[in-house]
């Protein structure tokens, strides 16, 4: 269920990005793409680990994982967004 929801959100986000790039006739520097992918991977890991750890009944691991993987994901996302300006 949550995988499905995540897939829909990811798909919608990807389509919005594609739309923005085409309609605004924008281009992104090459290094933005790996940064974006890294942010996405870390964010995905943070969210997955949080819920999986809760399912494992490892609450402490869930929160620590959210901070350790989630914070870099947020920072990288902020950096990537700044390139969109």
């Amino acid at each position: 269920m949550w995988r499905f929801v995540y897939g829909v959100v990811l798909g919608a986000g990807g389509m919005a990005l594609w739309d923005w790039l085409k309609t605004e006739n924008n281009t992104l520097d090459w290094y933005v793409w790996p940064l974006m992918l890294l942010a996405l991977a870390l964010g995905t890991l943070a969210v997955h680990h949080f819920f999986a750890s809760r399912a494992e009944l490892e609450t402490k691991a869930a929160w620590i994982g959210l901070v350790i993987f989630g914070l870099p994901a947020l920072l990288l996302s902020g950096l990537v967004v700044s390139f969109f300006q």
Partner: peptide
């Protein structure tokens, strides 16, 4: 010794 639900 883990439950192995998290991919980590």
């Amino acid at each position: 010794s883990k439950k192995n639900l998290s991919v980590i």
